[in-house]
Design a protein around this nucleic acid. Sequence first.
RNA 1: GGACCCUUAGCCAAGUGGUAAGGCACGGGACUGCAACUCCCUCACCGCCGGUUCAAAUCCGGCAGGGUCCUCCA
Length: 444
Amino acid sequence: MKIYNSYTDRLEEFKSIHPNKVGMYICGPTVYNYIHIGNARPVVFFDTVRRYFESKKYQVIFASNFTDVDDKIIQKSIEENISELEVSSYYINAFLSDVKSLNCKTDYIKPKVTKYMNYIINYIQDLIDKGYAYQANGDVYFRVTKIEDYGALSNRLIDDLISGSRVEVNNLKENPLDFTLWKQTFEGINFDSQFSKGRPGWHTECVAMIDDIFGEQIDIHGGGTDLKFPHHENEIAQAKAIHNHRVAKYWMHNGRLSFKDIKMSKSLGNVIFVKDVSEKLALRYFLLSTHYRAPLNYSDDSFAMYVTEWLKLENTLKTAFFKLDINNKLIEETEITAEDVNETITNFNSSMDNDFNTANAITALQSLLRLANVSIRKQDDFSTLNQVYKGLIYMTEILGLKVELNPISNENRQIYLDWQKARKNKEFSEADKLRKVLTDRGVI
RNA sequence: GGACCCUUAGCCAAGUGGUAAGGCACGGGACUGCAACUCCCUCACCGCCGGUUCAAAUCCGGCAGGGUCCUCCA
């Protein structure tokens, strides 16, 4: 299994730190608004990564934070005249509900900044004690030049950063690149610390949480490519200062989602909220249709294609299940022996093994769908149909494209049999009536 | 101004040295009581120019177009 490591900029063989265990951490949302479909991309992708590891029998320890202390949250609380806590808890719930609707697992570790304040403060103190941070007028800054290879992740040189930087207005810093660990504040929610009354900078929370949850270097740290610099670079700087490691063995960055070729972001206002998308799993399909490192452009037309794809998938899987169910031929423990079925599964797995190439995995899924449709048409080939069905369940489980499958009720079974009988007897108006009942009930 | 990335058929999208996967749409067939669904077939020489090579969409250089990042922005 190969993963593209953003830290080394290479495709590397994945080897977990501990056998059969994967520790992964993904940068989560700042909860001041609903998430848009661009925010959903990393969530869906890393959920898929998790699912794939789990299918390979890894025990996955998955953590992703909620940033619930932030200027934007404060601003929102002032605008709406409610507390920061009310703002953040509302949007945490909204996030979880949106993400669930995309069939992402939500049973992961979800640390919040407000619950980690002591830990973050101690972390910052530790950085000061070790000489990597300094206090200035109530603020605390990280001494970037103490880290020898600062910029290694994002491929930047300190000198280039300085020469390319904009005018620095903060003269409390020793070096314009130094980043804030703690900021004295007088507005909005603030916390007591030995430095001042204030708030932590954004970059410490993730490393502090990782430290507490995992206690060591983790296997995978993921997030959007826009987080590479400065956020992830700064995480690494802090971890190097304290632990002399780079936070994660493998760094993974997903490409951005754009809308009409411009990046989708709340600050630009060109967003489509997940909650407003009608076909949620078609959105998941769409988000996985392009390799995660490539940019993905949203348009109504391209999304519409995946609505079609999703409906086809749903239809085929339902029909396969229905045919097995109505004939009492569903076998849970089927061994896949058919060569063409096995080939699609092999292709699926090797695509996923190759840096989670979901685009190619989907191609394998589509081939299997064709086999399924052919098999459904055949009168009595239940063996193949069972194998195809099993393969489809396997793939859709990993991609998280879950199709609701309900065993047929006795009543509906009777209606179905009556429909077939009517058709056979050429009683077409009766047949059409029964068919309508079945389609209305979603049986066929 | 600095760093980096992208450009494959009408659309979406794989492929990273050996002569273009897949999907959507279109067109042609088949199946069907009708319809839906489904199946089969057809559909590109890879932005432009030059170079390296026996061989390039794939490597190098230039040009054009588009994008991302550059300290509290998530």
